Amino acid sequence: MSPKHIIIILLLLVVAYTAYDSMFTVNERQRVVVVQLGEIVGQDYAPGLHFKVPFIQHVRFFDRRVMTFTEEIQRVLTSENKNLAVDFYVKWRIDDTVDYYLSTQGDESRTRSLLTEIVENDLLAEFSKRTIRQAVGDERNEIVAAVQVQANQDAKELGVQVTDVRIMRLDLPEEVSESVYERMRSERQEVIRTLRAQGDAAAQEIRSDAERERTIILADAYSQAQTLRGQGDARAAELYAQAYTRNPTFYSFYRSMQLYREALGNDDLLVLQPDGELFKYFNPKPGSGSGSASSP
C-alpha cells in the first residue's frame, strides 16, 4: 500500500470520528447537558438525535427516573432525651439539570450523600420535638410529612426534587434495649400484681356475699322447717287426741304394743314384776276392759 493510500485512510477515519463525535442520541429516560470549556451551552434536549461541536463540546447524561436509597441513623434524640435508631428511605429525581450539574457535577453518589445529610438533619429536628410514644404512634406520619417538605426545600439548591421520605423502622439502640425491655417487664409485672390483687379482693367480696346469702337462705329454710315441723307436730297431736277420744281403750292398747316393741325387741335384760302396770295386757284381770280389748 502506498503512502498516499495510507494518508487517505487516515483522513477518512478522522472524518468518520469527527462526524460520530458531532452527534449524540437522547432517550426518554435521560436528561442531558452540553458542556463547552466548563460552561453549559445546552440542556434538556428532547428524545432523539442531536448535534454538537466535535472535540470542544461534551455531553453529560443523567437519569430522568425517580431514584431511591436507604439509610440508617444510629442515634436520634427525642424530647425526653431517649435514643432511637431510625431506618428510612428517600425517593428523589432531578428537577433542574443545570443546578444539579453545577452543585454535584452530576455525581449520583455525591447527590445521595448530600440528600442523606439533609434528611438526617430534618429527622433529628422533628424527633427532638416529640417523645418516643408520640414518634412511634400517631405522629409518625406527621414527622415524615414535615421532613419531606423541609428536605424538598433544602434540595432545591441541588436541582433535586424529593418525592417521598418514609421511615421503615424505629428501634432502640442495642445497648439500651435490654434495660428498656427489663423496665417494661417490671411495669407489666406491677400491672399484673395490681390486677391480681384487685381480682382477689373482688373474689373475696363475692365469696363473702355468697356466704352471707347462704347463711340467710339456710336460716330462712330452718325457720320454715321448724314452722312446718311445729304445724305437723300440732296436727299429729290433734289427730292423736281425736283418736284417743274415740276409743281410749284401743289407744292405750296400741301405745302399749309400741312400748313392748321398742323396749322388749332387743337383747337388753329387764327385771320387772309380772304383776306390774306394764304387763297388764299379758295378765288381764277377769272382767276388766283390757281383757276384752286383748281378746281379739
Rank of each mutant, 00 (worst) to 15 (best):
A241M: 10
Q258C: 11
L269P: 00
V14K: 00
I217K: 10
N121P: 01
F51Y: 14
D267G: 03
S294D: 08
T131I: 05
Q134M: 03
Q189I: 07
A201G: 07
F250G: 04
P173D: 15
T25E: 14
E262W: 11
F61P: 01
V162T: 06
V191P: 00
E126A: 08
K129E: 13
V119I: 09
L12Y: 07
S186A: 14
R130C: 09
Y100C: 05
Q189H: 07
H50S: 03
V14A: 04
L115T: 02
V180F: 09
S103G: 13
R193Y: 06
E277M: 10
S295P: 05
E80T: 15
R214I: 11
K4E: 15
S252G: 04
M184R: 14
R65K: 14
T131C: 08
N283Y: 15
Q189R: 09
D268W: 02
V35T: 05
Y260N: 09
S295H: 09
E39D: 14
S292A: 15
A219W: 12
A197N: 14
I167C: 02
S294R: 02
G276A: 08
T68A: 00
N266I: 00
F253S: 05
L12P: 08
E277I: 14
K285T: 15
F127G: 12
L114A: 10
E71L: 03
T116C: 06
F24E: 04
Q74M: 06
L115F: 08
Y251L: 03
V98M: 04
E71V: 00
F282A: 13
K129H: 08
E175W: 05
T104P: 05
T245S: 07
V53M: 11
N152D: 15
S128Q: 07
M184H: 10
I40A: 01
I40D: 00
A243Y: 05
R212P: 02
R93A: 14
L13I: 06
E182F: 09
Y45H: 12
A151K: 01
N81W: 13
E80C: 05
A219T: 13
A202S: 15
G287I: 03
A19V: 06
R235V: 10
Q43I: 14
F61A: 01
I94M: 09
R183F: 14
T194Q: 12
R229I: 15
Q30P: 11
A46C: 03
D95M: 03
S295G: 09
I143C: 03
L123Q: 12
S252M: 07
D209S: 12
T131H: 02
G137V: 11
P296K: 00
N121F: 04
I40T: 00
Q105D: 10
Q258A: 13
A16W: 07
A210Q: 13
E28I: 03
D171R: 06
E213C: 05
V15K: 02
L115S: 04
D99F: 03
R183G: 15
K285G: 13
L114D: 10
I143Q: 00
L195H: 08
P286R: 06
